[in-house]
């Protein structure tokens, strides 16, 4: 037979688990604020809390339980408002509260890094925003753009040394480790930064190259033409210059002529000057492409 102390310990564990689960449900569950106030016993019983534990929890009442709920949820909403200020402002108070409540209950956060909650929330909302009549179509792009700033500002890497090798057609290129390319369906990068602004972006497909300034640490954006987007995207994923030019031009529906080559040469020179392009790689395998 089991050691009675062990049996006691596992009973204790089971009780601990029940009360912890009830407590965290009270914090997370959507729309139960009122239930906690009006039917606390029902709430606890539904979570399997009974007997002496239930008696003691009922004695302590709903006030501090609701305080935890408000404290935890309020803090996360504050963080989202700080990290995605324009997206949250354009959602409006009511919609944001509802989106947050669903996110928190249905998905919840699965990172210990507070700033990453912004990406979790955006990914959770993307499809519902696309389907919702009341949410403008460009909102997902705006959220992605706000996330891009956050990502580049905090990105691991950056300030890698130049390779010392001039650009060569048969080689891939090294980019600064903070470089990211994003495509949007709307020109959300042209919207004013003011959170109270409600002007609408043009429905123009846009692509931005973002990187962190080596000296000032600020995030800088370069709007790319469609053909530059195709070429840079390929270079970022490790193609050689010649492959990126050929496939990029084809993907953009353009011919690889002198005019295109001159444009790309000009762009490469500009990116080199900004410290985004750091020269040719000695061989195709020596740098992994930056993470998306």
């Amino acid at each position: 037979m089991d050691d009675p102390r062990e049996l006691h310990a596992s009973e204790g564990d089971a009780k601990d688990i029940l009360i912890i689960n009830a407590f965290t449900s009270a914090i997370r569950e959507r729309g139960i604020d009122k239930t906690l106030e009006t039917d606390l016993a029902g709430f606890y019983r539904a979570h399997g809390v009974v007997g002496e534990t239930l008696e003691q929890m009922l004695e302590r009442g709903p006030r501090r339980l609701r305080m935890y709920r408000q404290m935890v949820q309020g803090r996360l909403r504050r963080v989202l408002r700080e990290l995605l200020p324009r997206t949250v402002a354009r959602l409006g108070k009511k919609r944001f509260l509802a989106d947050f409540a669903d996110f928190f209950d249905d998905a919840g956060s699965h990172t210990v890094i507070l700033r990453q909650v912004a990406g979790e929330f955006t990914r959770f909302c993307e499809r519902r925003w696309a389907e919702a009549e009341a949410v403008p179509d460009f909102l997902s792009d705006l959220a992605k753009h706000e996330l891009l700033s956050l990502e580049v500002r905090n990105s691991v890497g950056g300030r890698e040394p130049a390779t010392g090798l001039p650009l060569a057609l048969d080689r891939p290129l090294r980019f600064d480790g903070t470089t990211r390319l994003r495509r949007y369906g709307y020109a959300v990068h042209s919207l004013p930064l003011d959170v109270d602004d409600r002007s609408e972006p043009e429905a123009t497909p846009s692509a931005l190259l973002a990187y962190r300034d080596r000296e000032k640490y600020t995030v800088r954006f370069i709007a790319l033409t469609p053909r530059a987007t195709e070429v840079i995207e390929r270079l970022l994923s490790g193609s050689t210059v010649v492959a990126a030019l050929q496939q990029g031009a084809a993907a953009a529906g353009e011919t690889l002529d002198d005019e295109l080559l001159a444009g790309m040469t000009h762009l490469f020179a500009d990116l080199s000057e900004r410290g985004v392009l750091l020269g040719a790689l000695p061989d195709a395998l020596s740098d992994a492409p930056p993470e998306a």
Partner: peptide, 24 residues
């Protein structure tokens, strides 16, 4: 404290003052 129970709460939540919790 407790920080995660199926999801992260990004807060310092209380634990039961029990022998089993102390042991865990």
């Amino acid at each position: 404290c407790l920080c995660n129970n199926g999801a992260e709460f990004h807060d310092l939540l209380p634990v039961p003052f029990t022998r089993s919790t102390a042991k865990r």
